[in-house]
Design a protein around this nucleic acid. Structure first.
Length: 261
DNA sequence: ATGGTTGCTTTGCAA
């Protein structure tokens, strides 16, 4: 089973690229972030014509997440628990049936958190505490879980071409990296890190200042696996070539293969 | 070097 995550930076602006990539890669489940669309305007019809079930959690103008799946959704939940006042659309999860039971897949868009010393950074760290609680509960019941999305976190120096450029950025703050590390210490596996130890594997290149041409990238899109999901990990890869397409997203898809029939 | 680019709520804001 192929499961992907992709921050597409606007689903309406990116629909042609999305359809092209789905036909090329044929993933079974795709977690999307930054759809920047309300649910009513999400272009679900061409995706359904490719055989995908579509579940969205959108909002006007920015944020927004979705899951596309060739498998039928047994269950869908929107929103990360732990703060009823949080109205930002950054989390959706689906539950699917496999031959060995349920598989849970979540699509998350973790807050960027910039600038530092602002409410946005406080919100980021609070959101990560809620995510940790969510992961703890899921790990405790020994359920296979894929927690995929744009984490807006550079885990290690080797995950940036120029790590020193990010020292004053929320994506590379010690607090952000420690919160990410706590997920690992709970037992979550960073799928791409587990498969490829090669430095220089990036998932995002800024639109500005020729970052793509200079390979000035960072690795911030991650698929974190619970132990039961990690046991089935076969491969992980980055769909880097999509960044060179016309009208690209600034992120590229990351794909894992799990051993399900 | 405080630039540079993109998408939406558009001539500002978030990334």
């Amino acid at each position: 089973m192929k499961i992907a995550t992709w921050n597409i930076n606007g689903v309406k602006a990116r629909i042609e690229n999305l359809l092209h990539w789905l036909q090329e890669a044929s993933p079974d489940i795709v977690c999307l972030q930054e759809i920047k669309s309300v649910d009513e305007q999400f272009p679900r019809q061409p995706l359904e014509e490719l055989g995908y079930h579509v579940e969205t959690s959108g909002q006007k103008g920015f944020n927004g997440v979705a899951i596309l799946s060739k498998l039928r959704f047994d269950e869908v939940n929107r929103g990360l628990p732990g703060n009823d006042a949080d109205e930002q659309a950054r989390f959706i999860e689906g539950v699917f049936s496999t031959e060995t039971g349920a598989l849970r897949v979540a699509s998350l868009y973790l807050p960027n958190g910039n600038p530092l010393n602002s409410e946005k950074f406080v919100y980021k760290l609070g959101w990560m505490e809620r995510l940790e609680d969510w992961a703890k509960a899921r790990i405790a019941i020994e359920e296979p879980v894929v927690l995929a999305g744009d984490y807006n976190i550079i885990p290690e120096r080797e995950d940036a071409k120029y790590p020193d450029n990010w020292l004053n950025d929320a994506l590379f703050q010690p607090e952000s990296r420690q919160a990410y590390r706590r997920l690992v210490n709970l037992g979550m596996t960073d799928a791409l890190r587990a498969v490829t130890a090669a430095p220089g594997t990036y998932t995002f290149w800024d639109y500005q200042a020729g970052a793509w041409q200079k390979n000035n990238g960072i690795r911030i899109d991650h698929l974190m696996l619970s132990p039961e999901a990690a046991d089935r990990l076969v491969s992980a890869s980055v769909e880097k070539h999509t960044r060179a397409w016309e009208k690209p997203s600034d992120h590229v898809p990351v794909v894992i293969e799990l051993a399900y029939a």
